[in-house]
Simulated assay, not measured.
Amino acid sequence: MLKWYKAEKVGTLENLAKKAGVPSLDMYMFNHHHPIIFTVGTRGNFDIAVSSGAMGLFDASELEVMLAREFGHVLNDDVPMNTIVALFAGSLASVSTLALWGALLGGFGQDFDPAPRFIRFLGMGLVAVPSSLIAQLTLSPSRELLADAVSVELTNEPQLLAETLEHVQEYIKHYPIPLNPGHVHMFPLNLLSLEEFYDIHLSLFNTHPDMDIRVRNILGKVN
């Protein structure tokens, strides 16, 4: 996954690791406009990757509560399954991108023209169900609620976490960018944006709880 996103190591996360009581995790950065953060690894070796978009959008406190969520996934043993699902589901979902490029290289016009988008739609139609089922059948939405709870426990900033997640959700609405839908379960919230008919398959890949439920759950931790 780190190679997929061309991530490069930039340091370690020792302070949060000490709070969480786990070995220090390496931190990687990669170039992407979306505020993406995810944790990958198996057999106890885990790394956290942060996009350039996340570094630009979050201030230091916001970044800390979001990174603390990733330690929640480590503590709750979500990371190995998340990683395996991302590799399989992401590889299947890539078929639609290959179909799009095949259409463009075949002379069907630009990526915003109807013909290549329809070919991409057909390609995704073939792989969306098996690809999304991998995520839907193996991953529980509750893992995000538990990761949120760990962030609150480690940082004691429930209000900041709730506001940061809501900020990201609003950001996605205004700045939609194509993503591999087979990877979205690894991100802090659903970053897929349904802009038109051709995106309808993307709804199958959402494994995150509704934001209203998450916010109530986060703020309820201190009541």
Results as ranks from 00 to 15, higher is better:
residue 5 Y to Q: 09
residue 42 T to S: 02
residue 134 I to V: 12
residue 89 A to Y: 02
residue 148 D to V: 07
residue 72 G to T: 12
residue 28 Y to T: 01
residue 59 D to P: 11
residue 3 K to V: 10
residue 27 M to I: 15
residue 198 Y to P: 00
residue 138 T to Y: 02
residue 96 S to K: 12
residue 68 A to P: 07
residue 157 E to G: 05
residue 167 H to W: 10
residue 199 D to V: 07
residue 4 W to Q: 04
residue 121 F to W: 10
residue 127 V to N: 01
residue 86 A to Q: 02
residue 195 E to F: 00
residue 170 E to A: 13
residue 116 P to R: 06
residue 149 A to R: 13
residue 117 R to P: 02
residue 20 A to E: 07
residue 122 L to V: 11
residue 182 G to N: 05
residue 30 F to D: 01
residue 8 E to A: 12
residue 3 K to H: 10
residue 190 N to L: 11
residue 192 L to Y: 01
residue 25 L to N: 03
residue 62 E to R: 08
residue 172 I to Q: 08
residue 75 L to N: 05
residue 191 L to P: 02
residue 218 I to E: 04
residue 125 G to C: 06
residue 110 Q to K: 14
residue 84 I to P: 00
residue 35 P to H: 03
residue 63 L to Q: 09
residue 115 A to V: 11
residue 169 Q to L: 08
residue 184 V to E: 00
residue 1 M to D: 11
residue 87 L to P: 00
residue 89 A to R: 02
residue 163 E to T: 14
residue 163 E to I: 11
residue 119 I to W: 04
residue 48 I to S: 00
residue 3 K to P: 05
residue 136 Q to G: 01
residue 52 S to V: 06
residue 29 M to S: 07
residue 126 L to V: 13
residue 193 S to C: 07
residue 1 M to S: 08
residue 32 H to D: 09
residue 215 V to W: 08
residue 90 G to Y: 03
residue 61 S to W: 01
residue 219 L to Q: 14
residue 181 P to R: 03
residue 57 L to C: 06
residue 115 A to Q: 08
residue 138 T to N: 13
residue 99 A to Y: 14
residue 168 V to G: 13
residue 222 V to G: 08
residue 174 H to A: 13
residue 106 G to T: 03
residue 54 A to D: 11
residue 124 M to F: 08
residue 73 H to E: 02
residue 216 R to L: 14
residue 58 F to K: 03
residue 223 N to T: 15
residue 215 V to R: 15
residue 199 D to G: 12
residue 29 M to D: 01
residue 121 F to H: 15
residue 199 D to L: 08
residue 35 P to N: 06
residue 40 V to W: 01
residue 188 P to M: 14
residue 120 R to I: 00
residue 167 H to G: 15
residue 186 M to V: 02
residue 22 V to N: 04
residue 71 F to S: 10
residue 145 L to M: 11
residue 47 D to F: 10
residue 83 T to H: 06
residue 98 L to I: 14
residue 87 L to F: 12
residue 57 L to I: 12
residue 68 A to V: 14
residue 14 E to T: 13
residue 154 L to W: 07
residue 115 A to W: 06
residue 101 W to C: 03
residue 147 A to N: 13
residue 106 G to N: 05
residue 157 E to D: 10
residue 199 D to K: 10
residue 189 L to M: 09
residue 119 I to V: 13
residue 16 L to T: 08
residue 19 K to V: 06
residue 148 D to M: 11
residue 123 G to W: 04
residue 184 V to N: 03
residue 6 K to C: 02
residue 109 G to L: 12
residue 39 T to W: 00
residue 223 N to P: 06
residue 163 E to Y: 09
residue 89 A to Q: 03
residue 184 V to W: 00
residue 102 G to A: 07
residue 156 N to L: 15
residue 74 V to K: 09
residue 87 L to Q: 05
residue 109 G to M: 12
residue 143 R to F: 06
residue 218 I to D: 04
residue 39 T to C: 11
residue 103 A to V: 04
residue 71 F to C: 07
residue 96 S to Q: 08
residue 37 I to T: 04
residue 217 N to F: 09
residue 14 E to W: 10
residue 117 R to N: 06
residue 162 A to R: 03
residue 70 E to T: 14
residue 174 H to M: 15
residue 43 R to A: 11
residue 158 P to Y: 07
